[in-house]
Design a protein around this nucleic acid. Structure first.
Lengths: 210, 210
DNA sequence: ATAAAAGTTAACTATTTGGTCAACAGGTAG
DNA sequence: CTACCTGTTGACCAAATAGTTAACTTTTAT
């Protein structure tokens, strides 16, 4: 008696609670790290009793897994797949724009991802080894074709991808530092456009595509 | 009876032990985060009994502070101060080279620094607010002068500094990911030169300085 | 030679924390 | 109405861990 229809009410409260917990957990994991985030602190942030958290997620590691999965989904969406039809200029423009918007919209996702990688990617090794490696190689090959066709300068495509990743994610991961240096409390909408314009300009020129 | 002369032998074992502990602690903090790194794990890695660790450092937070201080010293050295005499081209070249070499030589420092910032820079707020903000503004002004003199393209100097920081540190912080994607076990000396060449080329072009 | 200082270390303690459990509440289907 | 499933929650426990203590050894200064 558990078909998809019946999960309207029951499934609703489940999904709602789980989502609330996920958001709270994300914040805690970013702020305190995996070990530093306690089930109690997640519960407090979600305004639920601790036992209720453990009712929805078997244990703390499960919560973290769910958070990571959520993060990877974000990554997938925000990566702005490169389209061969576009040619190098439009492709790079779209890619940079997608990643910058992503960074400003979901900084926690970027931060959790970054922390996971910095600490050795214990939970993401497989992801990087399979999915991500394939993605990078494919896109690098695409850039190489454009280079061979004389459509853009001869730059190392893999390093180019790394450059775009690092430069865009920086605004999410190092948010605190950047805001402090710029003496601001928060980013403004304008900042997003500024960063897109700056990075697009710099990198297109670097590729001989201005 | 404690003048500087007497600290030759006594000070030696102190300095030696403290250094050994610092190195071990750095690794543990990177791998496990602040809360996740236990005094015992640091002791094990340093091959010392736990009580000995607490003899040299009053408590865990003290160890972390020492590690952070050590990291900031690294940062200071590795930042390769920008010299106004050099002009924009040489200045950017030197800056990029210094930061890239730094990243490959002391990835743990970069990682600890990155984690601290990502988590909200609780221990580094003052550093960023005073020292770092001043540094960035000074250097930005320098770039602005070069721009005004027509010595380089009109690009936002602050974002330029962020770009160089992010692109260079990426190879330290995301080491794991990059190696996995490139299907390698470790970086080679050659990689350092490749990255320096790639980033210098890209960014100089972006600044109209090729 | 010896006293003081510095360093070493096992054992212990108080606290924190992940996870369990059992009792209870609320809604839903037949 | 009633039996069942889902969800809620306080109380509890065992393990982990930061930090203390006190006994002991080694080094240094005179």
């Amino acid at each position: 008696m558990k078909n998809n229809k019946e999960i309207k009410k029951t499934g609703n409260i489940r999904a709602l609670s789980q989502h609330k917990i996920l958001i709270a957990a994300s914040t805690e994991f970013v702020l305190q790290g995996y070990k530093g985030a306690t089930v109690q602190s997640i519960a407090d942030r979600a305004s639920l009793p601790k036992a209720n958290i453990l009712y929805y997620f078997k244990n703390k590691e499960n919560i973290y897994h769910a958070v990571l999965e959520h993060t990877l989904q974000m990554w997938d969406e925000g990566i702005g797949d490169i389209n061969p039809e576009d040619g190098p200029k439009a492709a790079i423009e779209k890619f940079i724009e997608a990643k910058v918007r992503m960074s400003f919209k979901h900084p926690e996702s970027s931060k959790i991802y970054a922390m996971e990688i910095i600490q050795g990617a214990q939970h993401l090794k497989d992801f990087a080894r399979t999915y991500q490696r394939k993605w990078v190689r494919e896109k690098a090959q695409l850039f190489q074709q454009w280079i061979d066709n004389g459509e853009m300068r001869d730059v190392n495509p893999i390093h180019l991808i790394f450059l775009i990743w690092s430069a865009t994610q920086h605004y999410a991961d190092f948010e605190t530092q950047i805001l402090t240096i710029m003496n601001r409390a928060d980013y403004e909408d304008e900042d997003v456009e500024d960063v897109i314009a700056f990075l697009t300009d710099m990198i297109l020129r670097g590729c001989g595509l201005h």
